[in-house]
């Protein structure tokens, strides 16, 4: 464990807490893409298949359980909760995310560490996570204005993978035989996808104005 990875995990945790805060405090999920939440639930479920077979550390196990439980809780809340689900932007959240699932799965069959059940699903979860934010970014683009908590949620979600890139660079130089090209390349693509969001987020922060995405 190194400081970059710990910072990345904490940033990821903060993004989840901000999302939960937004939904429970405002009793509204306006501006949140249900499709992105479903994709993230799928990412965690397919990545942590080894949750009960490979014990790495208490920290690792607890964080995996937190990520799985929180992503499922958000999806259930956005689908079931009678108050929250009324504020879901159903007609804006129309990204065909099934294509993202299919593309990631096909790519995982072609490019993986080992052609085994667990490795293919691990690669699938890595590719899917890189694309999972797309429905959310499209929804924000369409809705134009971004409320503070939603903006912070997406910002921290993007920042956590940037910390992981620093972690991979650090591990590359400090550990022999460290090679996680799949995660590195995919993590890079994931972070780049946030680039324009980060730009507009920074502009709104600098001008101390409400965040506006160009329509």
């Amino acid at each position: 464990m190194n400081i970059f990875r710990f910072a990345g995990d904490m940033t990821h945790l903060i993004s989840i807490l901000v999302l939960l805060l937004k939904i429970y405090a405002t009793k509204s999920c306006s501006g949140i893409s249900l499709k992105t939440q479903e994709l993230y639930a799928l990412v965690f479920l397919t990545r942590y298949l080894d949750l009960f077979t490979d014990f790495i550390s208490v920290y690792n196990t607890i964080m995996k359980l937190v990520f799985i439980a929180s992503s499922l809780a958000v999806v259930c809340c956005m689908r079931m909760h009678r108050v929250v689900r009324r504020s879901y932007d159903k007609d804006l959240d129309t990204f065909r995310h099934y294509f993202l699932i299919l593309a990631s799965f096909v790519l995982a069959l072609l490019v993986n560490e080992k052609f085994t059940f667990q490795e293919i699903f691990w690669a699938f979860s890595i590719y899917l996570e890189a694309l999972a934010i797309l429905p959310q970014l499209v929804l924000l683009q369409r809705s134009g204005n971004v409320d503070n908590l939603t903006g912070q949620y997406v910002f921290f979600l993007g920042a956590y993978r940037a910390f992981y890139i620093l972690n991979w660079i650090y591990r590359y130089f400090t550990e022999q035989h460290f090679s996680r090209w799949i995660a590195c390349v995919s993590g890079l693509v994931q972070t780049v996808l946030y680039a324009d969001f980060f730009y507009y987020y920074f502009i709104s922060w600098k001008n101390n104005a409400k965040m506006q995405l160009p329509a």
Partner: peptide
């Protein structure tokens, strides 16, 4: 043979 790393990251 290269030591195969484990999925020790989240």
């Amino acid at each position: 043979r290269e030591q195969s790393w484990s999925h020790d990251e989240l």
